Computed example of a mutant assay.
Amino acid sequence: MAMQHYDVVALFSGGLDSIIAAKVVQEQGRSVKALHFTSPFFGKPHLIPKWQEMYGIDIEAVDVGEEYARLMLDPPHGFGKVLNPCVDCKILMLRRARIRMAELGARAIISGEVLGQRPMSQRRDALNIISRDAGVRDVLVRPLCAKRLPPTPPEEAGVLDRDRLLNISGRGRKEQLALAGKYKLPEIPTPAGGCMLAEVESAKRYWPVLKWGDTPSARDFELANLGRQFWKRDNWLTVGRDQADNERIESLAAPGDLLFKVKDFPGPLCLGRQWPGRAWTPEAVREAAALTARYCTKARRHGGEVAVLVASGGETAEVHVEPCEPAGWGTPEWETAKEELAATRT
């Protein structure tokens, strides 16, 4: 079956600006393929069927998790207030969009960016840097603020009618909300949110992964999203909070990892990540086993030592420990991470 061709490829977050940008272009009679990018830090691919039905936009998910994990090691344009590499994030997405554009025979890329809306990535100079470094100056149009920016090649070529594009700027949403009414959107997304790298509670989980992991993968960051997180230098233990956590933790286990489970009582599954070439000491294994038992309610009530099964590489050992939280293990704190991150910038 021949691949369907589209006129325009759109960056689609699911937020109001990305919806309005797509509707403005559809109103000009142009077909749009929207790309919803996903990673351990953002993306809601499960909502795509709902979005397509509600907004009448053809959307596909694009996984950039591994590329993003590599980007996090050293983003060329740096992090924002938390751990968000907003400029490099948009560059990555636009580069991927350019590849998809060629595959679909499209002639332009659009995004929902609004001049002056975000302090890091939507200043005029940042918009120029993004277009330049992504290599999309000849194809990128920003429909919501196009009239506040110089004409682009797709506008000059008639792919999009500049007169029917918009001149929105700033952080307000009044004009977008009016357009939502015009297009009769059945649901208006709430502003903000969406990227966990901009949230302190999530970012503090990611920093130790960057600090201690040689080459962190998307699966490392997915694991950091789960359960309770404990670190003792580069020893990392994830403790499941419920059955859903336990199942996801098990699915993320790498061949060299350690899986901890109390033998005789129901409780959390815990995963100790063993970085390549850095096997855990017997002492660290015993301490992690004690932590595992600490979060098993029935093991604590039992009193005294309990048996914890430690599985790795197809073999299982049994460790007898008293439930406790050994010294030196702690949950990540953002203030510490912030200081360490600041030191890397000097």
Results as ranks from 00 to 15, higher is better:
E335Q: 08
A69H: 07
G240V: 02
V87P: 03
G65C: 08
H46E: 15
V87R: 03
D264Y: 06
L271E: 00
S18D: 06
L140H: 01
F41L: 00
R142P: 02
P143F: 10
D63P: 04
D88Y: 02
V310G: 03
D88S: 02
R294T: 06
E305T: 03
K338H: 14
G256E: 06
N167K: 01
R248A: 08
V114L: 01
V87I: 10
G105D: 06
P266N: 11
Q4T: 02
E199A: 12
R286Q: 10
H46A: 13
L71K: 06
E318S: 15
V136C: 09
G56S: 11
G80F: 11
D264M: 09
A192K: 14
A327R: 09
L149P: 01
A2H: 13
E67N: 01
R124K: 14
G181N: 07
V25D: 02
G227P: 13
G56A: 11
E322P: 02
K338N: 12
E315W: 07
M93F: 11
F41C: 00
A284W: 07
S31L: 01
E199H: 11
Q176L: 15
A97G: 13
R96E: 10
G277W: 00
Y295W: 09
G172C: 07
E322K: 14
A244Q: 14
P323V: 04
D7F: 02
I168S: 05
E305L: 04
I59H: 00
P255K: 07
C324H: 14
L73M: 03
A342F: 14
E66F: 05
D63C: 07
V200N: 12
R95A: 08
R278Y: 08
L237E: 02
I168M: 13
R171I: 13
V139A: 05
W51N: 13
A34C: 01
A288I: 04
G56C: 07
I168A: 06
D163W: 09
A108I: 03
G78R: 08
R137N: 05
L92M: 14
P186D: 12
G240N: 06
G29F: 15
K147N: 03
K263M: 12
G267Q: 04
E187K: 12
N246P: 01
I110L: 04
K174Y: 14
E67W: 03
M120D: 12
C324W: 12
G43E: 00
D163F: 07
E155F: 06
M72C: 07
K184C: 07
V308Q: 04
I110T: 02
R345L: 15
E318K: 15
R233S: 09
I59Q: 00
L47N: 02
A108M: 04
L149V: 05
S111C: 15
P216D: 15
P85V: 00
F41T: 00
G56N: 13
P208D: 10
D220S: 09
V25R: 01
K298M: 14
Q28P: 05
I249A: 01
A293N: 08
L271V: 04
H5S: 14
W212F: 15
T292V: 10
I20V: 12
R123C: 08
D220G: 09
Q122F: 10
S31Y: 03
Q28H: 07
D74M: 12
Q243C: 03
